[in-house]
């Protein structure tokens, strides 16, 4: 029953988010601030992780290709498929659930604890729209982060595979272009958009409806990370089943 109540509350929150809108000039500034906090602030860690994940995937693939009949181009092919289909959209989103999700939950949760949300409500402001809508809009730019992550992942794979002496540059480029299915990119970006919405709203729900004090803000951030990850993984499964099966 608790889960059903929470799911219902989440959808009611979403209804409120898209309810009465905040003044446009105020909203514009809030969206720009959220893009800076949520997206730009995450670029460093995303770039770092993507590059090294790509590199590790390339090395692991190369080290496991013992059969001389298997072409060396498979290193780049496997790295490309892994990075585009799962590592960039899903793995990076799980990392973002920890970084951005915890930030969203704790910032909204602190506002709840210190009566800042009550202050907004008393002034007649739709607090759900004011606090959550700009985060959803800011997260619409998340696919750009994933695009950069894909590029850096492949750069990492190239660097590790070629500089490590596993394949030549030509073999890598050939493998990179081998059997390329453009729909895989479409699939990756469709799920990235869905992940962006989840990353903005599930942590916001945990922050907005939290009760208690500073200690509970920390607990809410942890719970938020767990549930955001669960929803991401389940959504990933459903989308993959629907689009790729």
């Amino acid at each position: 029953m608790t889960y059903l109540h929470s799911i219902g509350e989440y959808f009611l929150m979403l209804k409120g988010v898209f309810g009465r809108m905040t003044k446009t000039s105020v909203l514009r500034n809030l969206i720009l601030k959220e893009i800076n906090d949520l997206i730009m602030g995450s670029m460093g860690i995303v770039a770092f992780l993507s590059f090294f994940i790509g590199a590790v995937v390339a090395i692991q693939t190369a080290l496991n290709l013992n059969n001389p009949l298997i072409p060396k181009t498979l290193v780049a092919y496997a790295a490309r498929q892994s990075v585009i289909l799962e590592f960039s959209p899903t793995f990076i989103s799980i990392i973002m659930a920890g970084k951005v999700g915890s930030y969203i939950t704790s910032s909204i949760g602190s506002m709840r604890v210190t009566e800042q949300i009550d202050a907004l409500e008393v002034m007649g402001i739709n607090s759900k729209n004011y606090l959550i809508f700009p985060k959803i809009i800011a997260m619409l730019t998340y696919p750009f982060v994933i695009a950069i992550s894909m590029f850096l992942g492949m750069s990492g794979a190239y660097t590790a595979a070629v500089l490590g002496g596993f394949v030549t540059s030509d073999q890598f480029i050939t493998g990179l272009q081998e059997d390329f299915t453009p729909f895989h990119l479409t699939y990756a970006f469709i799920k990235t958009f869905m992940f962006a919405f989840i990353l903005a709203t599930v942590p916001a729900y945990h922050g907005y409806y939290m009760k208690g004090g500073a200690l509970e803000v920390g607990e809410a951030a942890t719970t938020s990370f767990v549930w955001t990850s669960v929803v991401l993984i389940v959504t990933n499964y459903i989308v993959t089943q629907l689009l790729l099966s």
Binding site: M111, E115, Q116, D118, A119, V122, M123
Partner: peptide, 13 residues
Amino acid sequence: IGMLFQGGALFDS
């Protein structure tokens, strides 16, 4: 309506 909350409820940001 003006409201003064117990803790002030100033916006931290």
